[in-house]
Design a protein around this nucleic acid. Structure first.
Lengths: 142, 142
DNA sequence: CCGCATCCCACACGATACTG
DNA sequence: CAGTATCGTGTGGGATGCGG
């Protein structure tokens, strides 16, 4: 019963939701939206509704299973809206809901950050890997 | 050779990085930062350097394995800095690098969004699940 | 053809035990 | 305190098969 962490104390103090708590539903939501397919998917829907096959083309390398699975999860969470047009063949469109739209700026920011800083990260990886190699036998004179 | 998607055409047009392309290094970076532990970890380091055990306490429910693994990956990518103080017992501090700091606003935005919209998402889930149940036998009067 | 469900395998994750 | 090593399991993800 005794609170061990600041987070737990904060919860008892009355703060509604805190993603630092393992039991908080926010944690599950954070887990869901912290997903590479989610970020790509929401970004892909930024310009307007898209068909299933259109999304599949736009997001290169996504399997049908993951696309369907991710879309279902986002639909259940109220972030995207699925509309079926009973034509032949059937046409399925996906669009952002207002709730999904409110997340879009964040998802866009993530994707933009990745594209803008990939070179710095690549450089950091090179440096780290070189350092690790040198560390193995201490060729640094000694 | 013919470009199939807008993304592929964009690449040939000269745009350097595009996360929509499966082969683009940005995709891997996006995958790495789109991780629940990464978002919690960077947020946890927002207020300043933290010790390993401090992070372990603050981020409830994270296993040692995932904590170490995530920290190592972030260190390699140049987002966090690991500093060892050779005392007894040894003391290890983790801090955000400037590069990691540039990602912090985004990570904070994600966590904040999750905490702010969890109730709407929960409501959407309820609605979706009820609809799914109703769909089974159509108890909607008929 | 388009959209989606199932099978199967490899990998990632989490729990535990152990080291310096 | 700050990790590393190992094992069992859950999940991601490709290939395949089905309904409309």
């Amino acid at each position: 019963m005794t609170p061990h962490t600041a987070s737990q104390r904060r919860e008892q103090a009355g703060m509604a939701y805190d993603a630092y708590l393992a039991t908080c539903p926010t944690r599950q939501l954070l887990d869901r939206i912290s997903d590479k397919w989610v970020s790509l998917l929401l970004n892909a829907l930024a310009d307007g509704p898209q068909r299933y096959s259109g999304l599949s083309r736009k997001i290169a390398g996504v399997s049908q299973k993951m696309l369907t699975q991710t879309l279902r999860a986002l639909e259940r969470d109220g972030l995207v809206c699925r509309s079926v047009t009973p034509s032949v063949p059937v046409r399925v469109d996906y669009a952002l809901t207002p709730l999904g739209g409110s997340l879009l700026p964040v998802m866009r920011a993530i994707k933009d950050w990745a594209e803008m800083h990939i070179e710095q990260v690549a450089a950091a990886r090179d440096a780290y890997d070189s350092r690790s190699l040198g560390q193995a036998s201490l060729p640094d004179n000694g």
